[in-house]
């Protein structure tokens, strides 16, 4: 999967986890938490959806890699290889 595809995977999940958020203006280099109303419960959902939809595991010590869209893509792309 390309980095573009992985980015879309993450965006699709965020759109389902936080349906009231406008994702069109999201800056991929900035922290998701600062741009969206996401709390720890929502991050859990992102992790759970990655497992459910794509069989990708994110251990809790790696949650910090999910801070921004860019860091999500960098961390997750090898896992989708």
């Amino acid at each position: 999967m390309s980095t573009v595809d992985v980015k879309q995977v993450v965006l699709d999940i965020i759109a389902d986890v936080a349906p009231d958020e406008d994702l069109s203006t999201l800056k991929s280099s900035d922290a998701l938490r600062e741009q969206l109303d996401l709390d720890s419960m929502d991050f859990l959902d992102i992790v759970m959806e990655l497992r459910k939809r794509h069989k990708v595991e994110v251990p809790s010590e790696d949650y910090s890699h999910l801070a921004s869209l860019d860091s999500c893509v960098a961390y997750l792309t090898p896992k989708f290889a």
Binding site: A18, D20, D37, D45
Partner: peptide, 14 residues
């Protein structure tokens, strides 16, 4: 609707 960080909003999202 959409009010951030409120218990009701969290519940609906979850």
């Amino acid at each position: 609707r959409g009010e951030r960080g409120k218990p009701l909003t969290k519940l609906l999202k979850q």
